[in-house]
Design a binder for these strands. Structure first.
Lengths: 137, 137
DNA sequence: CCTTGACTTGAAGTCAACTTCAACTTTTAT
DNA sequence: ATAAAAGTTGAAGTTGACTTCAAGTCAAGG
């Protein structure tokens, strides 16, 4: 596949694909300076990258998980920890979602004054500030 | 409360608090140029900001939801839409989490080669690339 | 009163993740 | 063969969210 086909199928701009390649997230075939060719599997990788980003991973973290490299096995504990982080995020996002839905339905003059909103958020928020520090590592 | 107390209680650095104040996310009391004083409610606001960030909202979006401003009612449809976005994110994060946990347990030589991992991610990824375009608005 | 240290400000610097630019080469169509 | 379209490169620019810096101010202790 050439770059335009990947752009069409993935919706990711060519500039981003080049950027991803330069930063070692995806690979292209053929000599350099000439038009890139991509294996179809690049679409899977791009989906994985998009997912990782959704999960709040940096490109650096994602790269370490893709590591097609020379046999270095990736750290399974890291993966499990990431999954734990994500699960915690999910719990809090659920609270945020409920809070937003309530706010959308609630007729209090200001959301800051709606006690239900406050309470929903407060319960969710309790851990958020704490997590703030421990995330990103 | 003075700024150091807020720093201690929230874990958020003073520079960030000043930055948040400058960008209108939180407010401080007293005249300018002299030491800031914060109402205790600032802690709730900070928690809310942290939560919003967890949910993937930009500070601009968060500000629009806090809007303590002059009576402009915030858009409830926007809130509901955000909640929908977040729910979609939650569904995909669940898949990511399952994928990561499987990868952590799986003994395939490379995760790219593990069919279960592939399948989990593929199902989660199907929407991820599409969502990529529509998010952030 | 004076020093010390925490606080203030605006401006500039940093980092991640891209995008845009300028100059140039490769393909494709005629 | 050649013009136009689409691709390539490295370098520089952009945006969001902060952090760091330089210079000055305020407040508490001795």
């Amino acid at each position: 596949m050439d770059i335009t086909e990947v752009v069409k199928l993935s919706g990711i701009p060519a500039s981003t694909l080049r950027y991803y390649e330069k930063s070692g997230l995806i690979a292209s075939l053929g000599p350099r300076g000439v038009r890139r060719r991509f294996a179809p599997s690049v679409l899977d990788q791009l989906a994985l990258i998009a997912l990782g980003q959704l999960a709040g991973l940096s490109l650096t973290e994602i790269r370490s998980m893709l590591s097609p490299g020379g046999g270095v096995t990736i750290d399974r504990t890291l993966l499990a920890n990431k999954a734990d982080d994500i699960d915690a995020t999910i719990r809090q996002l659920k609270a945020v979602s409920r809070g937003l839905r309530h706010a959308a339905a609630c007729s209090a003059p200001s959301h800051a004054e709606c006690p239900t909103f406050q309470e929903l958020l407060r319960s969710a928020a309790s851990g958020a500030l704490a997590r703030r520090k421990t995330l990103g590592g």
